[in-house]
Design a protein around this nucleic acid. Sequence first.
DNA 1: TTGTAAGCGTTATCAG
DNA 2: CTGATAACGCTTACAA
Lengths: 377, 377
Amino acid sequence: MATIRDVAREAGVSIATVSRILNGSPRVSEEARSRVQAAADALDYWPNVAAKNLTTSRTHTLGVLLPDLYGEFFSEVIRGIDHTAQREGSQILISISHANTDTLLTTARAMQGRTDGLILMAPEKSSAAAIERIRRRFPIVLLNPRYHIEECSSVSIANREAAFAVVDHLLRIGHATVATITGPPGNVDAEERLQGYRDALKQAGRKPDPALEFAGDFTESSGFRAAIEMLRYPPLPAAVFAANDYMALGFMSALGQAGIRIPEDVALAGFDDIEISRYLTPPLTTAHVDAHQLGARAVRLLISKTRSAGSAVPTHEVLPATLVVRSSCENTGNRRGRHGRKETAGTLPLPSPPPRKPSKKKNGKGTGIPTRKETQP
Amino acid sequence: MATIRDVAREAGVSIATVSRILNGSPRVSEEARSRVQAAADALDYWPNVAAKNLTTSRTHTLGVLLPDLYGEFFSEVIRGIDHTAQREGSQILISISHANTDTLLTTARAMQGRTDGLILMAPEKSSAAAIERIRRRFPIVLLNPRYHIEECSSVSIANREAAFAVVDHLLRIGHATVATITGPPGNVDAEERLQGYRDALKQAGRKPDPALEFAGDFTESSGFRAAIEMLRYPPLPAAVFAANDYMALGFMSALGQAGIRIPEDVALAGFDDIEISRYLTPPLTTAHVDAHQLGARAVRLLISKTRSAGSAVPTHEVLPATLVVRSSCENTGNRRGRHGRKETAGTLPLPSPPPRKPSKKKNGKGTGIPTRKETQP
DNA sequence: TTGTAAGCGTTATCAG
DNA sequence: CTGATAACGCTTACAA
């Protein structure tokens, strides 16, 4: 492949001149400029980015270290990161699935010299030590985990507040007992959501009951298993708060098989508002998390950090989550009654179009939980 | 940050020795080894990867250029890529959303010197010219698009064959008319699936009817709109094949609102088998695509290509897709009859656990369409 | 076994 | 405005 030297020779100038021209330096003659451009085009010259990185010690690349996520949340976070990075003229070097502190460190090492900073999502508390070592070498922004490492900037989700809002809603509309299906132990999101659940109960004057806290791990199948567990020891709770939508999905599936109706027999709410939640039967009440925004914020924070060269004080942004009320949590007051779904007559009523996502308000730092009542999609 | 020179000074050896030791060269004295290790640890030395890339002209990094995908398919492809790359000791540099040929080229340029090869997914046919330029500089593997660029290795999905199998199934179980909701025009997957649909009709002795081909664009809302369109001009077709699951989802949602039942009033099938398809009411018949595998294959192909230094002939792998039959496409022979779902008695039957994914058979190159009949999840 | 020194492809600092 | 030339941090002959 052609190097800057080839271009210089072809254009009959020095490599310094080529470099200047190709980087848009102002003090160059029009004549040299056109000769160099022609030569570069003729040779189809692409600069070697690694070499450029080395001399400038700027890479215009952001490292992204994620746990082994999957599904929509994962994809939206990445999209948010990449879109924003692209707008800021940066690329992203991704690595997923750092199982443990060791691989986390290894991956971070592989970023040395190739990234200007790191976006790091490590929901396990045990990674704190590794993070401490990493942050001495890179500007970093922590994604999501709110167990504060005060020295690092972070952007996280108002898990506790939103979970509180969800459960509070269930209680307010009259559900007598509210159970929960938790996320994996040691996971910060899971713990914060559980805390929100408990706080809501307490505020309503009820004591959290361990028998109502079913262990899950954020997978559908764990929601499915939790349902089986509940069915084994009746009576069913009036309502269930699953710590994420996937578990709610598994829960619904199990109940469907057992012939139990939602919300008539059990009300249900989830967390995350994954795309399909609104399409379920019934549509799922949940807390909407703007994953795209989460990634976007992290990038902006990180980029501003790399610009101010470490002098800046760490910022902690908390993204609010929106309570989205759909029919899965209704209190029909009609437990074990007749069919909820009405029989349709022979005519074919035209449905209304699906609702759009909530407008993305830019009210960044608040932790207030906006509520939205959604009609049937 | 400490460089190799600092370590050398600290250990009292030359930088060459440090390099040798840190890269596990055999011919070094035990004494030097321990001194260097100690120095490296003390200084917390992390080698600069960009510099290493420059000297060795190997990066152990794979570039991944994707269109603006989202959702599970996207996330699974990336996971498949990253997992496999990690196992092969490589990292991935991702860039998504190359809207057009221009940005595609720009992004590829940013990879120069930083990646050993490129995995490229560009479902729009118009990118062919750009691909042609890129492949002169990098070993590349094309993901998915089967409009053959013979010179490039590729791994793609048996879109046509699987779509054929789906529609063929609908016809075989007795659905008189089968409509389709298509993907966006110009998209290779969409076109191949449409072709499979038409071929199945033809094989059954029917002429494809443009009035039964509804235009969609792979989004839920386009499925929703297609449903409205169908409702506007009765009668409904006996069955509908949506070119992906998201559109099937939107379709179901619209029909649910209109009080039309699936499969009693209209049978439905999708494509992709996204995670939630099995949890829908009713569970969705679809073609299972192993997105993770797709990514994994691409990585293996690319890595073997980088090793054999361009001498190898291009390989074209086609990943089969599995027809997954669930209840959304049943022929109840009971159109507009009574409720399909049986009323449940007072007892609570325990559901069976959710079905697992099909076992990932390693029967790579075939295009045969394995079929799987799935009981209710 | 170890050290010296020549690159790798750029940018950036000087003189001119 | 332009050209030498010294970095950048590392690997790797080639000598010793």
